[in-house]
Nucleic acid binder design. Structure first.
Lengths: 213, 213
DNA sequence: TGATTTTTATACCGTAGTGTATGAAAATCC
DNA sequence: GGATTTTCATACACTACGGTATAAAAATCA
């Protein structure tokens, strides 16, 4: 395999940047969903004409898959950064939720929620690949939370009898409800309040050994 | 307005039952989502030909709106029944979650989650009416949980400093995560475990007056 | 400067999908 | 039983969409 340093030398130079083009295509899918997004809309959004789109990304479904992958990769990075081990768990989780809300409310046509949940969820029943990507992304986010909770438990921020795997899924559940409610048109302030009460529930100390034998 | 008792008398009798036809149309939307569902698929699913569909339900979007309304109405009924005030809160919530899981895993082509979240969420950005219906449905479910939690708090099942409105939204959040994860292909046993740990978190007694001034 | 390579630009093809027109079928009313 | 009413069944019109063929444009190499 020959390493292609930078752009290829010969031929007419590309008039677009693949990274920004993919981001623009993703924005189109994000608003309308996969099925309702036309290639004309993507063409307009990216400024690329149809043949260039095909040359760069393949057909519509392949392009959508690349958008899903990119979103997941971005989310992974942002999550790892927000879950900084230097902060208390509560602050780290708050950062995650705040970052998510900023993303979910960043649409030009109003709040659009999470790209994965907002678009891949619909496809998931009939499109096996989309379903698998969605499921794996959700699992990976669960795992990131779980690792962070495990660390917090070891540090004594949470009770020793905490089940990190179970609690992580509930931390994710809060993220899911934010994704849904933002796209459903709920006010951001309402979601901020949900974040605070969720943090209360997740991080508030509980009675240990409460199990009455 | 003349009262039409039963079916109209004159003319060729209808070959379909409107209620079951709507349920079958809903099933088609449920799997593929609004945009990807063709009228041919609905025609096949219901056994009605295209003109009969239009005569009965109007155009595609109107039919979809009726499916959304019907699902919401069914959910309202089921929720009210499951939230029986005779049971302890924990058992009532468990019934709600179990009923939801039965519905979410009832698809012929695999788990399909919640019809509202699985299909209307995608449309919500560009379709104002769908967004409003979704938002209002979510709010109504929040309110049902809130009323039930208020009752449980009055009975002493939960601490007196419980915030019913906030806790209700987290109870809903668990429902949302079940809706997402089931459609994303997660195993039912995994979701059953989430239900149990969520009930633990929601219903486990907390330290009162834990706020350190 | 001319040949070669790569991308852009326009136009087109085939298909699929929504909504409707038109006439046959099946019931009731007189 | 014939007229009337309502629904069914087939076919069709129109549009929109995904994907591609073809040729011009813009770069490099010799």
């Amino acid at each position: 395999m020959t390493v292609q340093n930078k752009s290829s030398k010969r031929g007419r130079p590309r008039d677009y940047d693949p990274d920004t083009a993919l981001a623009q295509a993703m924005a189109a899918f994000w608003d309308a969903g996969y099925a309702a997004t036309t290639l004309d809309a993507i063409s307009t959004g990216t400024g690329m004409n149809r043949p260039s789109l095909y040359a760069a990304f393949g057909d519509k479904r392949t392009l959508y898959g690349q958008a899903l992958n990119r979103y997941h990769a971005d989310a992974r990075t942002a999550l790892a950064e927000a879950l900084s081990p230097d902060l208390p768990l509560r602050e780290a989780l708050r950062r995650v939720y705040e970052h998510a809300l900023s993303l979910y409310f960043s649409g030009e046509r109003g709040a659009r929620g999470c790209f994965l949940i907002g678009t891949a969820l619909t496809e998931a029943v009939l499109d096996t690949a989309a379903r698998t990507m969605l499921r794996d992304a959700l699992r990976e986010i669960d795992a990131a939370f779980e690792a962070r909770i495990r660390r917090a438990t070891a540090r004594g921020e949470l009770p020793q009898d905490t089940d990190p795997q179970a609690l992580a899924k509930l931390v994710s559940a809060v993220l899911h409800t934010l994704a849904i409610r933002s796209r459903a048109g709920e006010q951001r302030a309402v979601l901020e309040a949900i974040v605070e009460s969720a943090l209360d529930l997740i991080c508030r100390p509980r009675i240990e050994a409460s199990r009455v034998a």
